[in-house]
Design a protein around this nucleic acid. Sequence first.
DNA 1: CCGTGTCCATACGCTGCCGTATGGCTGCGA
DNA 2: TCGCAGCCATACGGCAGCGTATGGACACGG
Lengths: 197, 197
Amino acid sequence: MAAKRFGPRDWIVAALAALAEGGIEAVRIEKLARRLGTSKGSFYWHFTDRPALLEAVLDFWETEGTSLVISSADAVGSPPERMQAVVDAALLATEQGVDVARTEAALRAWAAEEPVVAQRVAQVDERRVSYLAEILQRMGYDTASSRLLGVGIYLALMGLYDARRYAPSLADDRAFRALVEGIVRSARASARASLTD
Amino acid sequence: MAAKRFGPRDWIVAALAALAEGGIEAVRIEKLARRLGTSKGSFYWHFTDRPALLEAVLDFWETEGTSLVISSADAVGSPPERMQAVVDAALLATEQGVDVARTEAALRAWAAEEPVVAQRVAQVDERRVSYLAEILQRMGYDTASSRLLGVGIYLALMGLYDARRYAPSLADDRAFRALVEGIVRSARASARASLTD
DNA sequence: CCGTGTCCATACGCTGCCGTATGGCTGCGA
DNA sequence: TCGCAGCCATACGGCAGCGTATGGACACGG
């Protein structure tokens, strides 16, 4: 029963879990230590202080916790198929054991209070929205409409993530799908129209 | 220069402002006292403890801070006009001096951690969504679609509120309007279709 | 003028968390 | 076997916030 050793990654994962459960205010070094079954001494060996941990958490999330961006790598299939794949990926409840909705929502609540965090989250959002807009454009929407609808879809997704945390009756995946389907349908309709015009 | 006296309402308003600015964790009795220019002694005269204040804040918000519900009172005009009015009201930046987006978003971040809060916020959400669904139904959507699209619109609005706090480039009112307009247009289209069928 | 009820100021003890200091344990290469 | 680097445990001082206790200040009716 060798006493376990802990690396920075263990602290980051624990911090991410605490963030998802109780918001950034719940990410407390001594709490994490208790949960991990170790002491602060370990933490301050791997990190200089709490802000350093929080920054590491942000880094981790940016590089390893962005399913929408990851799915943008395999950009195969027709636009509708790609949209379908993105929606399916976004609606997954958990990813590698972490609750996607709670994490994403908690991250944004945090961003609302820390400008530095806001900037980095907004940057990720921008990439995701750009990807959505690109798909929409390939469906036949003009540049401006694609952007607007991409933003709209993304906002609805963030709202859904939020709702999953407190309002099960609102957190209806079908509502989000209905929104996207309506947009996809309109694209087809106007494309058909432009053919028959 | 008579030293000001404070009633419960002063504390509630201050708490609501602090909530909008820094989340529920920023609602600290001693901080509010400093901001108001008084001391804790005053607070503990009017409230038994911090939970009592937070509950009063919730009550206050439910009764006086729900513009969407208020606008459901004047249910006049055609469905599209009513939808337009609701959207316009929802997109107002401030209401009686308080930042609507920050307040609504902070409230939901709070609800994510406190089941009691979650229940009450969800109740308000339910009423708002029902109102949206009712309008959509009058536009020609069937019951199920109305509900789904109403939820979708509402989720997007919550996402917009969230974005206003940290991502100005995403917080585009036109994106939300585009979403709603698409839905309204589809209603008209299918209504026309059902006439010609 | 005086008592009483209303409201606020201040001091106190308590708790949880931060970051530091210091010492102990463990494995490994010389 | 010894020494040393890497890693962890514990104790400490400090700070911020909670809720309580207690003592005014002030207005107002008798």
